[in-house]
């Protein structure tokens, strides 16, 4: 029982990080109707950048977020303007392939620059943990969770309380109607893409502190992000967050009680089991269209 609770705590904490990355993916899907198959490699890219900022310049990964978030925001806007905007007519499924291809290209560059051996960011507090009522709370995961809550809270405030947020939600619901009502859909989509990629920027550093990574880690993370997206229903922010925390907990509990080898697989089983009952995911709506 102690083991189970311990694993659940650790799982919830890391689930927050998954929630952060996956929420970015959900925002991007909302405005572009494209699943961002490059969200995982964006996270790895930021993990590498935090790694360089930490080892070469001594900047703490939690501080480097201040640089990475605006940089990734601009990067996201750039991708939308240069790549995705042109595809709007030929369908969103092409965008998925474009981003997948882009992700593979970025992995190639990262493999070339950093080589393929595993890296991990190890600041002095990396292995510290507190003991609360007999349970270990790893410091890095705790702060990562706080960071995720803070960023997700900010995103939620932007979405619910600002004019930009209203335009974002409107574009997500119905781009045509939004355009008719005076929303600059292209601009809003670009900003949405920027926000989504920036979420990966915020998560990269903590990801790199918690797990060892290299370019190929993107597939591991990608499979999790995609499962979260489908389980959460692709568009829904609450759905995404719930699915991410479920993933974190299932993964951690299975790793602790059965074997780490089966932790990723067990979540995929959960995913398929849910889809038998609800093909649209936990919170989703049915999608239409074809490639």
């Amino acid at each position: 029982m102690h083991l189970f609770v311990q694993a659940t705590i650790v799982g919830i904490l890391f689930g927050g990080v998954y929630a952060l990355i996956a929420s970015g993916q959900a925002i991007i899907f909302g405005v572009t109707r494209t699943v961002n198959f490059a969200q995982a490699i964006f996270t790895i890219l930021c993990a590498y950048l935090s790694y360089t900022l930490f080892t070469d310049f001594g900047i703490d990964p939690f501080l480097s977020i201040l640089v990475l978030v605006p940089a990734m925001f601009a990067f996201g806007i750039g991708i939308y303007v240069l790549l995705l905007r042109r595809l709007s007519r030929s369908g969103a499924e092409l965008g998925l392939l474009v981003l997948y291809g882009l992700g593979i290209g970025i992995q190639g560059v990262l493999d070339f620059v950093y080589k393929t051996n595993n890296r991990v960011i190890t600041p002095g507090y990396a292995n510290n943990s507190w003991t609360v009522a007999g349970y270990q709370i790893p410091e890095v995961r705790f702060f990562a969770f706080l960071l995720a809550v803070a960023v997700l809270g900010t995103l939620q405030l932007i979405r619910q309380r600002t004019k930009l947020g209203r335009a974002l939600r409107a574009t997500t619901q119905n781009p045509v109607a939004s355009r008719l009502l005076g929303v600059d859909v292209e601009r809003i989509s670009a900003i949405g893409m920027g926000l989504g990629v920036a979420a990966a920027g915020a998560a990269g550093g903590v990801f790199g502190m918690i797990l060892p990574f290299n370019g190929n880690t993107q597939y591991d993370l990608l499979s999790k992000l995609l499962s979260i997206a489908v389980l959460g229903g692709l568009l829904s922010m609450p759905g995404t967050i719930v699915a991410a925390v479920i993933l974190g907990v299932v993964e951690s509990v299975v790793a602790a009680t059965i074997s780490p080898d089966w932790s990723a697989f067990s979540f995929l089983v959960v995913l398929f089991a849910v889809l038998i009952i609800r093909p649209q995911g936990l919170f989703g709506r049915r999608l239409r269209g074809a490639l």
């Binding site: 899907f29 699943v35 995609l226 990723a264 697989f265 889809l275 269209g289 490639l291």
Partner: peptide
């Protein structure tokens, strides 16, 4: 039959997820 209940992006995601599942099985 299960995968084809979804469409478009969700189908793309599930099909690649299936591949990751098979890969995990091959490892394990």
């Amino acid at each position: 039959r299960l995968l084809l209940r979804t469409r478009a992006a969700a189908f793309a995601v599930l099909s690649i997820t299936l591949m990751f599942m098979v890969q995990t099985l091959a490892y394990n």
